[in-house]
Amino acid sequence: MTRSSTPQQTRPPEEPEHAQRPGSDQRTPRRRSRAHWPAVVPFFAFMAVCFGIPAGTMAYNAFTVIDAETGTSEYSLHNVTTSLSGAYATGLAGSVKLSLLSAVLATVLGAVIAQAVINSGKSKLRKAIVSASGVFANFSGAPLAFAFIATLGTTGTVTRILELQRTGFSLYTFTGLVLAYLYFMVPLMVVTILPALDGLRAQWREAAASCGATRAQFWRHVGLPVLMPSLLGGAVLMFGTAFASHATAAVMTGSSVPLITIQIANALSGNVLVGQENLALAMSLNMVVIALIVIAVQIPLQRRSNRWLG
């Protein structure tokens, strides 16, 4: 006798969770993304009013030349070409030189100070350094200039005590501006680079030591390559900070040191020539272009730094 085999019932395959059934809405993710747009509308409106309109007006007037006799205006490259030649080119080069030198010195000094704070291992010292750096980083402009004049000026306290005049030192020169800029840029660099230095893992040091590497070899082959994006990003930030500073240089040196910010202020106020407002806007446009380049360089460096140390 043979047993009658009962036919086995086959279960239909389960439908994947990600599969969409007929009639289901396939544009749900897109609708969700659109739902977030109203939340950022005020931000873009603020950017358009506070930055877009002034930037557009500046660019429009920078390429506009007004005839002094007839009062008519026409589009021309005269303001832009003038802003990149002669004394104005010297002022732009002076600002770039001052910013580069200050940025390099502030980056090196700030990184060394921040690393010394971390190596100390004292939380109270770190809190004191961070708090002081936050205060000093925001102490700039005319108050800083007056403080330096009272301290290192011709009749300043430190100048008379150390008799700095015999050495030929003068605060009202390019070197004096560098010292004044470092006063607030070094603390700013300390605050900027501390999180990156904290990101260096102790396991990396232990692994390097177990392989027989010295401290110098660790910094050369591991520490500096990892920190390089953060250091370069901090240097770019320092450059932008120094490049945009105006009040400190205006109070300390006036027009004795050619800087583009002082030339823009003189052109707008008519201290040199009357009716040079559009030329001042052309020089401002040059600064905006350099600032955009600085931002374009800093963003990728910041992303690469966060990838390693985040």
Results as ranks from 00 to 15, higher is better:
residue 207 A to T: 02
residue 145 A to H: 12
residue 229 P to G: 00
residue 171 L to R: 13
residue 248 T to P: 00
residue 26 Q to E: 11
residue 15 E to N: 01
residue 156 G to A: 06
residue 141 G to W: 03
residue 138 N to C: 12
residue 194 L to D: 05
residue 264 I to N: 13
residue 180 A to F: 04
residue 203 Q to Y: 06
residue 197 L to G: 00
residue 48 A to C: 11
residue 68 A to H: 07
residue 6 T to K: 11
residue 143 P to R: 11
residue 263 Q to S: 10
residue 239 F to E: 01
residue 145 A to D: 12
residue 188 L to T: 04
residue 253 T to I: 08
residue 136 F to L: 14
residue 241 T to Q: 15
residue 68 A to Y: 07
residue 119 N to W: 02
residue 110 G to F: 00
residue 123 S to G: 14
residue 49 V to L: 15
residue 215 R to N: 08
residue 26 Q to T: 09
residue 163 E to G: 02
residue 288 V to F: 15
residue 180 A to V: 07
residue 195 P to C: 01
residue 91 G to C: 11
residue 277 E to N: 09
residue 4 S to N: 13
residue 91 G to I: 03
residue 146 F to S: 13
residue 34 R to T: 01
residue 288 V to S: 15
residue 90 T to Q: 14
residue 195 P to F: 06
residue 1 M to W: 12
residue 257 V to R: 09
residue 88 Y to A: 01
residue 124 K to S: 12
residue 39 A to M: 02
residue 290 I to W: 11
residue 285 L to F: 15
residue 3 R to T: 06
residue 79 N to T: 10
residue 281 L to V: 02
residue 81 T to A: 09
residue 167 T to D: 04
residue 288 V to H: 12
residue 41 V to T: 07
residue 38 P to Y: 08
residue 69 E to M: 07
residue 150 A to Q: 10
residue 189 M to K: 05
residue 309 L to I: 01
residue 305 S to Y: 05
residue 175 T to N: 13
residue 105 L to T: 02
residue 45 A to P: 07
residue 241 T to N: 13
residue 30 R to V: 06
residue 306 N to W: 11
residue 227 L to C: 04
residue 225 P to K: 02
residue 151 T to R: 07
residue 11 R to F: 08
residue 225 P to V: 00
residue 310 G to C: 05
residue 7 P to L: 09
residue 71 G to M: 00
residue 29 P to K: 03
residue 26 Q to S: 04
residue 64 T to M: 13
residue 281 L to F: 15
residue 173 T to C: 08
residue 108 V to T: 04
residue 244 A to V: 10
residue 220 R to N: 04
residue 150 A to G: 13
residue 293 I to T: 04
residue 270 G to L: 05
residue 48 A to H: 05
residue 109 L to Q: 03
residue 297 V to F: 10
residue 173 T to W: 10
residue 47 M to K: 08
residue 243 F to A: 00
residue 282 A to N: 14
residue 104 V to R: 09
residue 27 R to M: 11
residue 204 W to G: 02
residue 71 G to P: 01
residue 211 C to W: 11
residue 180 A to I: 03
residue 83 S to K: 12
residue 211 C to K: 07
residue 108 V to L: 05
residue 3 R to A: 08
residue 145 A to R: 10
residue 4 S to V: 11
residue 14 E to Q: 11
residue 168 G to K: 03
residue 48 A to Q: 08
residue 97 K to A: 04
residue 16 P to G: 09
residue 66 I to N: 08
residue 99 S to H: 05
residue 55 A to C: 15
residue 151 T to W: 11
residue 282 A to D: 13
residue 144 L to A: 10
residue 47 M to C: 11
residue 258 P to M: 03
residue 167 T to F: 13
residue 4 S to G: 04
residue 269 S to N: 05
residue 78 H to E: 14
residue 163 E to Y: 03
residue 143 P to D: 07
residue 259 L to D: 13
residue 222 V to I: 12
residue 100 L to V: 08
residue 275 G to N: 06
residue 257 V to N: 12
residue 278 N to M: 04
residue 166 R to H: 02
residue 11 R to N: 04
residue 32 R to T: 06
residue 201 R to P: 00
residue 188 L to Q: 06
residue 137 A to K: 06
residue 22 P to T: 09
residue 278 N to R: 12
residue 178 V to A: 08
residue 277 E to K: 03
residue 250 A to S: 14
residue 168 G to D: 07
residue 191 V to A: 08
residue 177 L to Q: 02
residue 255 S to R: 04
